[in-house]
Design a protein around this nucleic acid. Structure first.
Length: 484
RNA sequence: GCUCCCAUCGUCUAGCGGUCUAGGACGUCGCCCUCUCACGGCGAAAACAGGGGUUCGAGUCCCCUUGGGAGCGCCA
């Protein structure tokens, strides 16, 4: 293994970690893990106005929740400003950069007239070869790269292929602002170089930046890292994922009850494929992932597929782990549904026992929690519309009829309950469903639930009989359907 | 406007010149299973944007058109 790969995820902390950023991080992580390399994390906080502590925390939290770990310490770009300046000084000395005294107004005017004349909107190089003695007094200059004006600049991208720009279409970008702080374009190059990054994997909105950064590498005499510009994720309407589509941070998906493993699985298949395989464990993903299988067209975000995948992962995940995932989001989502931020031991045990039946039927942890309502419902149990419809007078009469047999059961478990109810249905001359459905409605307050006998077994004799009794006694009485 | 990128079922995609009467998955619609709902099983409808080339042969290569997208800051 001659050249261990080093990738990096480099978000700017100006907002939460969104779904596109999460996928970029995942791809970097997978590529590094696949090749036994390292993934670094760098926070691009050179924009002091917009970078915030909460955003940094949200990004770190999001990555951790998603299960994407990084190697080494987090690098904060702003802390490296002195190094960035040093590099620019060198460039200034070698003639690779120059001071530009153009005012913001001049620049705006330049862009406007260029556009109106159908020319590319770019800096015209007016200070490129001008005598510094012409510098207006009192104006702090920016420092620009003396970019080549002829020929072409190409990047050999592992996803996009060889992409070429004519140098005349690229202008002299700003390296150092007039206040002496480095720009993103410069900082990225210096940091990637200093950090030993071998592969830059990022969204293809950076494709042009790739060319401009290549010019900086060349001016510095540094070797250009491998690049892979992956297509962006679009919203359902085909436009770039944005606030209009909900502007969701990764934390929102957590709160919606998605499993990290499902999100990883969904994200990896957006733009990348491995034959016909749709379902991936982490190990499979790491083993199969590579850059050549990444497509070049943007993918649309499809919530339905994410939900389906989440359902699959829910079923595959052991009950204890699902329970832990629930406990992670409970502080967020518990209080709103009458659950506290934590589960008391008794409820936890009942939930765990019910999970095999529950996780089979839910697409998200939220759905699961709602379906488990019968486990934590306050008394008296509220009936939803379907349950209320099921519990008509004949149904209630059947409940009354089966009550003695249930009360007399020596053992209260799934098998004994099923035997008793089947016998009861036969004795009443009705189909199993005609008795089971009223029982389900009485015991869960819902028209649907996990298998009835499992539910009754977990609930226990006392609770079950009380709920059945309450509905049996209400024969002929109009019930108040649950408002919800 | 300029530069660059993209184009297979509604969506994610397989396809790397002949095995494509185009495969899988999600979603949709039937049927089966069944104590409900799911799961699972079986089946159906559903796509190579259009036009030119190249070739014995094109979804696969080239060009044009059309349609999407991204970038064009002293933001990142």
């Amino acid at each position: 293994m001659p050249d261990p790969v080093v990738t990096r995820f480099a978000p700017s902390p100006t907002g939460f970690l969104h779904i596109g950023g999460a996928r970029t991080a995942l791809f970097n992580w997978l590529y590094a893990r696949h090749l036994g390399g390292r993934m670094l994390l760098r926070i691009e906080d050179t924009d002091r106005e917009r970078s915030t502590e909460p955003a940094i925390a949200a990004i770190l939290d999001g990555l951790s929740w998603l299960g994407l770990d990084w190697d080494g310490d987090v690098v904060f770009q702003f802390s490296r400003a002195a190094r960035h300046r040093e590099v620019v000084e060198g460039l200034l000395a070698s003639g690779g950069a120059y001071r530009c005294y153009a005012s913001p107004e001049e620049l705006a005017e330049m862009r406007e007239s260029a556009r109106s004349e159908g020319r590319p909107a770019r800096y015209d190089g007016r200070w490129r070869d001008r005598d510094p003695a012409d510098a207006p007094a009192g104006v702090k200059p920016v420092i620009r790269l003396r970019a080549p004006q002829e020929g072409e600049t190409a990047i050999v991208d592992q996803v996009q292929g060889r992409v070429v720009w004519q140098n005349k279409d690229l202008d002299d970008l700003v390296l150092l602002r007039s206040d002496g702080t480095p720009t993103y374009m410069l900082a990225v190059v210096v940091d990637d170089h200093d950090m030993g990054v071998t592969h830059v994997i990022r969204g293809d909105d950076h494709l042009t930046n790739g060319a401009r950064q290549t010019q900086i590498y060349q001016a510095l005499g540094w070797s250009v890292p491998g690049m892979a510009h992956i297509p962006l994720i679009h919203g359902p309407d085909g436009a770039k994922l944005s606030k209009r589509h909900g502007a969701l941070g990764i934390d929102a998906y957590r709160s919606m009850g998605f499993l990290p493993s499902a999100l990883r699985n969904y994200l990896v298949r957006l733009g990348w494929s491995h034959g016909n395989q749709e379902i991936f464990t982490d190990a499979e993903m790491v083993a199969a992932f590579d850059l050549p299988q990444i497509g070049r067209s943007p993918a649309r975000f499809d919530a339905a597929k994410l939900e389906n995948l989440n359902g699959h992962h829910l079923r595959e995940t052991p009950a204890e782990q699902v329970l832990q995932a629930i406990e992670v989001i409970l502080p967020d989502v518990g209080p709103a549904r009458g659950l506290g931020p934590h589960l008391d031991p008794e409820l936890r045990a009942r939930l765990l026992a019910s999970l095999p039946g529950l996780k089979e039927r839910a697409k998200t942890l939220i759905e699961l929690l709602d379906a488990a309502y019968y486990l934590y419902a306050p008394s008296p149990l509220a009936l939803d519309a379907k349950a209320a419809a099921i519990l008509d007078a004949p149904a209630r009469a059947r409940l009354a009829a089966i009550t003695p047999a249930l009360a007399a059961l020596p053992e209260w478990n799934t098998a004994s309950l099923e035997a008793a109810v089947r016998a009861g249905a036969e004795a009443l001359g009705v189909k199993l469903g005609q008795l089971a459905q009223p029982l389900r409605a009485a015991v869960t307050g819902r028209g649907t639930s996990p298998p009835l006998f499992d539910v009754m077994a977990v609930l226990g004799r006392d609770v079950s009989m009380a709920r059945i009794g309450a509905q049996a006694r209400a024969e002929g009485v109009e019930t108040t359907p649950n408002a919800a």
